[in-house]
Design a protein around this nucleic acid. Structure first.
Lengths: 227, 227
DNA sequence: CGGTAACTTGAATATTTTCAACGTGTGTGG
DNA sequence: CCACACACGTTGAAAATATTCAAGTTACCG
């Protein structure tokens, strides 16, 4: 039987109980919480994957580097998201805390072992991997074919959908991260945001006019006429 | 039985059940074969996914469109590749034959049904999905952060790896497809190829100096110092 | 044989990046 | 508690890169 996928494009809240683990693991061994300070590394690219993670609070960036330092951020992980799945034995990205972040850790070993004789669990892994894939597919379209304005608008729409609480969108990541997620420079991101602000499509309401933003979703959608 | 389809003649296969869907099939060994003429559509974006496919011969392009016609080709599928996996019920891309192409079709329904009580099969789906994901991840880095020269070099390296036979690389797709795969224009692709040719890194050996190419992998790698 | 599709090349243009300067919060150490 | 360094962001101007527009070539197909 087919499971129904949510219309979201990034790992949406997948509770660990959905992984079929909640009932039968030892919380002292299988599951633990850990807090990472802003900027600290959670795991490195090509490192053996020991755990998978779920964001309890905070935000995580996941990225690849080129040898000369160019960086492509693949995804931001916000509360509820599961990340660090690899299937193969090694991580394909570096993951870092964007802000102070608390994660739940699950020993990967116990997970793959359990998946051996639990088809439901394997299907959950498949579903989560598919969710990641769908996000990557959409992001390829953005990176390959959208203009800077469209990218920034799409970013705001995505973040609004994923982490707006009480009508308020608080962007946890600096411009540098937004730029590296969108395949742009910080200056281009800044100019695009300024332009949207001038047009009244967005409005910053925090002290330094940077992080807390009110967005007009409908007007924003005009700047990223999806597809 | 092999049928030959044109874009205007018979629609895509509707009644594969007629072709004898056995209870005991191996998903990777095809049930039925179908031939698509160059340029014809295999399935459309958002269409319900009825089959998954394996390329027997030919090449397939998989892409998304923006409303104004901008196109991002996500992947090329060459002989041996399996494509059209969706997990969810609908295709997320349009797939077309780049050249005349023969595919093996597997009814998706029977596959997911079989996966219900076959953990090995589900793990195979997970593995294939992970392979797609890894490719998408690498392609995001290319689209977001690489220069046009690096993209073209990376493309040639990828194609050399995937479809070189007897030291000869025959590119089945036109420049337009290469451009839409790499997030560039045809002119930029053409100029990059010309430059590599001038430098002696590649050499076209077919009559019209376009499709059959000898590549110096080592020199090429210099232009896409991977990561 | 003529029309067309595909490709290449050149020149002008557009977009984004780079370089540079400057502002503003924040947090730390004196 | 203040001063000051620093990280972060914005804006302007110059430069680089890729795109767009245009013209011309070649192979292929009917």
């Amino acid at each position: 039987m087919l499971m129904h996928l949510t219309p979201t494009s990034l790992p949406r809240p997948h509770s660990l109980s959905e992984l079929g683990l909640a009932a039968d693991f030892d919380p002292l061994i299988g599951l633990s919480e850990f807090t990472y300070r802003r900027g600290s590394e959670i795991y490195g690219e090509k490192e053996p994957a020991e755990y998978i993670y779920q964001v309890k609070s905070g935000t995580v960036r996941s990225y690849k580097l080129l040898s000369d330092g160019r960086r492509q951020i693949n995804a931001f992980h916000v509360p509820g998201d599961v990340f660090g799945l690899t299937y193969g034995g090694n991580h394909r990205f570096t993951a870092e805390a964007v802000a102070d972040t608390t994660l739940r850790l699950i020993k990967r070993e116990s997970l793959t072992a359990a998946a051996e004789n639990d088809g439901t669990l394997t299907r959950d892994l498949l579903r989560m991997t598919t969710t990641n894939l769908r996000h990557a597919e959409d992001h390829m379209l953005l990176l390959g074919r959208k203009t800077s304005m469209e990218r920034v608008a799409a970013f705001l729409i995505e973040m609004d959908r994923r982490l707006t609480a009480a009508g308020i969108l608080a962007l946890p990541m600096p411009r540098r991260d937004i730029a590296d997620y969108l395949g742009l420079t910080i200056e281009t991101v800044s100019r695009s945001l300024s332009y949207l602000r001038e047009l009244g499509v967005i409005r910053f309401i925090d002290n330094n006019q940077r992080h807390i933003v009110l967005v007009d979703k409908q007007q924003l959608a005009v700047f990223d006429r999806q597809n």
